[in-house]
Write a protein that binds this DNA or RNA. Structure first.
Lengths: 340, 340
DNA sequence: CAAATCAGCCAAAGCGCTTTGGAAGCCTCT
DNA sequence: AGAGGCTTCCAAAGCGCTTTGGCTGATTTG
């Protein structure tokens, strides 16, 4: 059932039917009703390919997926996706994943924009002065950044959580408990979120006249193994930290294992706080010692990004609005006063 | 730069240029070379929307993503996706995720097929007599199932691992070590993979004149918490199992925690084997006691599914070919002889 | 009362590609 | 020399939508 057939049944022109369906004003209310009715009854659905060719709009949002042998998509992605899907489902938006060589995403961005394959894109895990942002900004496709970049002379729309504030609060709590030697096990130091977290922690320390020594900060990919290694290195030093803040629950698993291996205890010998993106399959309250966390649901962020993308596509949202979500600090058993 | 302009520059018809580019025989080699050359030089890329409208082919593969508030996409998905991306990138295939209400995926399947949005789809986590299979089979779109279903009167193309064989081997090993009371912590019992695993284990037990009691099998969603709860229930019984086989590494985390909480040890009091889908962020060799596993890379499966989908789209693969991958049994420190 | 306005509809021209149904030119064969 | 067969190209008809530029008849305006 296509437009031609439908308009023929109604003894109307394709023009009128099309306009009736798309809510244009130059069609009488009665006619519109007739058309809408017939369309529903016959299950008419405009062919998206044809519509796309005519309008250039695809009804899909895009994401350039970095891939490669050495590239692992991390599990945060799937939670974000869940949220995105929650919103997209309700609005019949589809998501297009365009796999790209992790070393050359630019070509792929250019392709999907030139081909008008998607109406908008989102960019995630940005770095300072991330070239992808500059690119999508000049390409002129609606976009939203999940996270933030820095060092640009233009503004851009984003959704981020207050990573600096979160880690500032976490560190402040530990300091109040009397800890003097804090350490940070961070994510990839080239990503902005990691920079912000470090900054928040340094700020808290500075306020107490302390600093974060070079040796007390580790930046690694967020795996259990890396968490373990980082923790061992830290804890086997001369003056080991009495508190660790850690950028992910998965790394925290490794930290807990290291602590055990060394015959230490949490929170007796070490206080631990980790960031929790709220995975359904791994919860901080179920750690051997319930884990204190800075918590922010990445899934909710996904839904919000989808919502804003939809708004930008339809012109409801404009400009470079940035949105920063506060982060909860949830205190559980893994923190205690500094050992004397 | 579109076809019209290009053909104009070359003083050729659009027909000829199109045919030259698409490798049709009715064009002289010299002309083809000229055309190819000019196309490359001017960076001509056919507009996919137009091509799609004309041919009905989209160059994309589809996946219907079940969503909903109570629905969690599990982290296996992202690993599978990585593999799929690895292949798709090299072949300029895009992936379309169509979020659907988890209770009604059918509507979405019908939509993407009717709209010709994708050239092929894959279906994952099938259940016995899964309606999605019957649907895509009758809808006539090329597809591949990741996993298997059962109870149909038709065959279908799939890629699966030998879940039954894997768990049979795992159980056999434990039996050889003298264990008599085995337990299974399985995934959702309604999915075929879980059924196969249970079957494999029962077969090994039966060969030794043993059975898997109702109380010694748990089927739950694969989270750390569920692993913990299942293990506690099992281990707090009168005659607790001396060995557990577990369907995922994430649940195994919970099992390990339960064992610790109860003051037991691995492998002294309990031998443990788990299935490992090969996550980069959580490795069995890094468990407190290195974990024995049945191992199969879900990422490689993703790449293979993409490859076969591409083959089916281009007509290179036909029929209902099923492919079953063997699973490695990797023995590490978490298994030992049964306690006396 | 003629002119101007307006609501409501339509025919046709795109969008950029593929594919059908020739046609021209050149050989070969009888 | 004419018929038949290749090779190589082309014009034009789609694919199914949106949108431009009218056209008609009824209503308002000066």
């Amino acid at each position: 059932m296509n437009l031609k057939q439908l308009s023929h049944m109604l003894s109307l022109s394709q023009t009128t039917v099309s306009r009736a369906l798309n809510g244009y004003p130059e069609v009488s209310e009665e006619t519109r009703r007739r058309v809408m009715d017939a369309a529903k009854r016959h299950g008419y659905r405009p062919n998206p390919s044809a519509r796309r060719l005519a309008t250039g709009k695809s009804g899909m949002i895009g994401y350039v997926l970095p891939t490669g042998n050495a590239v692992d998509i991390d599990p945060h992605f799937v939670e974000f996706l869940s949220g995105l899907g929650d919103y997209a489902r309700a609005h019949e938006l589809d998501l297009v994943l365009s796999p790209a060589d992790a070393d050359d995403e630019e070509t792929t961005y250019r392709r999907i924009v030139a081909n008008r394959q998607v109406d908008a894109v989102y960019v995630s895990s940005p770095r300072p002065a991330d070239r992808r942002l500059a690119l999508v900004n000049t390409l002129g496709i609606p976009f939203i950044v999940h996270g933030r970049s820095e060092g640009f002379d233009f503004d851009y729309p984003y959704l981020d959580i207050d990573n600096e504030g979160a880690f500032h609060e976490a560190a402040r709590l530990l300091l109040q408990l009397g800890h003097k030697r804090l350490a940070l096990i961070n994510g990839n130091e080239r990503e902005t979120f990691a920079i912000h977290r470090e900054r928040g922690m340094r700020r808290a320390l500075a306020a107490n006249g302390l600093t974060l020594g070079e040796r007390h900060i580790r930046s690694v990919a967020m795996t259990e193994e890396n968490g373990y290694r980082a923790a061992r290195r830290l804890l086997e030093e001369n003056e080991p930290p009495t508190a660790i803040v850690c950028s992910s629950l998965i790394m925290a698993l490794g930290v807990v294992r290291a602590v055990r291996d060394l015959g230490l205890t949490i929170p007796g010998d070490l206080s631990l706080v980790a960031h929790d993106d709220v995975f359904p399959w791994l919860r901080p309250e179920n750690f051997p010692v319930p884990l204190s966390t800075t918590r922010s649901s990445i899934r909710l962020a996904g839904a919000r990004v989808a919502e804003r993308l939809a708004a930008r596509i339809s012109g409801l949202e404009e400009g470079a609005r940035g949105e920063v979500w506060p982060v909860d600090l949830v205190v559980r058993g893994s923190v205690a006063g500094a050992p004397s």
